[in-house]
Design a protein around this nucleic acid. Structure first.
Lengths: 340, 340
DNA sequence: ATGTTTAATGCAAACGTTTACATTAAAAAC
DNA sequence: GTTTTTAATGTAAACGTTTGCATTAAACAT
């Protein structure tokens, strides 16, 4: 057996055909006779031939690889979205290259460059919390490579397709739910407003307060990154001394869980004395007791819509150059549980 | 500005140098003068040049891409492992290409082929539950492409590096813990024995029973795939009529959680009347009440060890051809909580 | 018979790098 | 002042495909 990976040249030699014919046969070109195609396919099998996608990508300027830049694959929302994305892309014959930023802006820049280097056919991005400058993606737009942002998207205008959940509505529903349940003093744990998610949820919170004629008090709103550490620190601060809030809208579930556990440890009874709403419908919220009311984002739908949008862009590539697409906003849903 | 992506040819033309010199300059070749390197780097920046990794991979037969084949990126263990893997690979200048099998054997074959096609420099695999034939990976071993299996690994001999947790010990510790806590009748929800994980945990279970002189009863051992549906079905079956088991060792946490919830709904008091131990230390086990005793597998360590092994293989590529590496077994730890 | 169409295949260039093997020019050695 | 060494750069082939443009041979039309 030959020692090197077999190529179409090997097949051509074995069958005494030209490499052009072999290439066409393998690509099911209409002008190649069925007999030849069959022979070629059989020989290819016998030699365990696999197309070298580097060579074919280089020549044909098409790699069938899609890049995905994402903060952390292990977060519930993203893990679920990835699954949907990968499945759908695979159906259409694409592979997925995943890069993880760990919410580092520098890493995001590096990854964008690396993705371009490997000539992905398209790129999907959920940016870091701190990305406000998106110019590292210019190389994609300039070279007309389809680019979609999903979930974490540019706050200011950037010429690329955007798919995101309806965070304003989510924030509004969550806060309204607390208000309707009788809460008078609703605190909000937001994240940095540089991120569209928190900005929109916060806006929903503010408007819901106004609608229900509840006071907005800035000492009950927090804008730190929603790490467990920060959550615990703020929980301590909130419950250091009365008056306590009687409702909390936390902009993510991890934070909601920590708040709940901390309040419980202080003997505060939930939902009687304190109501809590989280965001994302992380599996843990269903299991903790009392189970936490939260906002379902349908990460799989978001992922699928993002892929749809990307495929659409790839189809129309070249034509609609520079055309501005309007953002796609996906539905959210309040999941009512015992905590509120 | 030019319309096409810029290449080293563009740089060479702009500086009136040969493309060879430019290539060497960009690769920091020792024989190129500092002055030239500087000029080249500046021009590259100006033109927003990015190396085309297809071309360089084709020529140099090195892509800097590592493939990862995994059942589901959203499972806790794997999501965590991926994060560790990706971070560590990135430190060494590699990108990660992830393929998800959804535990389908057919998909695994397809993905293996696709990974080979894109000429990954190495491949990491956690196989499906049902993979017993590993011949679709032969193309890697035959072409001397580093291959490591982790977590879900071949049960029978296969000539590739293996990294796995100490599942036998995990099963043994879990069962012993129940026995020491006074359980006399310990059921075990295992998965299909075609998978090393379940096979080893089951073996640990059996040996622990023997050591503690407890009876083994085959009607209290189950080997179905550990889906939520199966878990619920078995839970109903176990508690349809007395005698009930007084301890259960579930081979995964999802199953343990469902058992716990079902038992609770029947009014069975945990841990007094029934003790439960799970496997994996899924975050949900810490949050449910009572919190579930489980086995920590340190997925990040497993991932890192797998990367270490892969990097090692890539270094020594060619030399130790055919040499058999012995499996690496990583530590596990019993996490004692209220459920047992 | 000769010209024309059609079907099947072949030739050779191109994609953007890397690298073995020159080549050149300047410096060093004699 | 010739030869030798050294440093810097250039030439051209190669990696494995794809594809525009032939070419060939057979089938058909005149």
């Amino acid at each position: 057996m030959q020692k090197h990976e077999s190529t179409i040249v090997d097949i051509a030699r074995a069958l005494n055909l030209s490499i052009a014919t072999v290439s066409r046969a393998l690509n099911d070109h209409p002008k190649i006779s069925e007999a030849t195609k069959k022979k070629v396919r059989e020989q290819a099998n016998a030699l365990e031939y696999r197309r070298n996608t580097l060579a074919s990508g280089l020549r044909g300027s098409r790699t069938n690889n899609i890049g995905l830049i994402i903060p952390r694959v292990s977060m519930y929302f993203h893990a679920t979205a990835i699954t949907a994305i990968q499945n759908k892309l695979h159906q259409h014959g694409y592979n997925l290259i995943i890069g993880q930023t760990n919410d580092s802006f520098e890493m995001e820049k590096e990854l964008a460059s690396a993705m371009f280097s490997s000539r992905v056919d398209g790129l999907m991005v959920a940016s870091t919390f701190y990305t406000t400058d998106f110019s590292h993606f210019d190389v994609f737009t300039r070279n007309d490579i389809p680019l979609v942002f999903f979930d974490r998207v540019p706050v200011d205008f950037y010429p690329a397709q955007v798919i995101r959940g309806d965070d304003y509505k989510g924030g509004f529903m969550a806060t309204s739910h607390l208000a309707k349940a009788g809460c008078k003093t609703i605190a909000h744990l937001s994240g940095p407003l540089s991120c569209n998610l928190y900005k929109d949820r916060y806006a929903g919170y503010v408007d819901a307060l106004r609608k229900h004629r509840l006071p907005f008090r800035k000492e009950w709103v927090f804008f730190n990154e929603l790490t467990p550490e920060n959550a615990l620190r703020i929980a301590r601060q909130l419950f250091a001394a009365p008056p306590y809030p009687d409702g909390i809208f936390a902009s993510n579930d991890t934070t909601a869980i920590i708040l709940l556990e901390h309040a419980r440890s202080l003997g505060i009874v939930i939902p009687e004395q304190l109501k809590i709403v989280g965001y994302s419908n992380d599996p843990r919220t269903a299991i903790i007791s009392p189970a936490i009311t939260t906002v379902e984002q349908f990460p799989d739908k978001v992922g699928e819509r993002a892929v749809d949008a990307l495929l659409e862009l790839m189809k129309g590539r070249g034509r609609r150059k520079g055309e501005v697409q309007r953002p796609i906003i996906t539905a959210v849903e309040l999941v009512c549980r015992a905590s509120a």
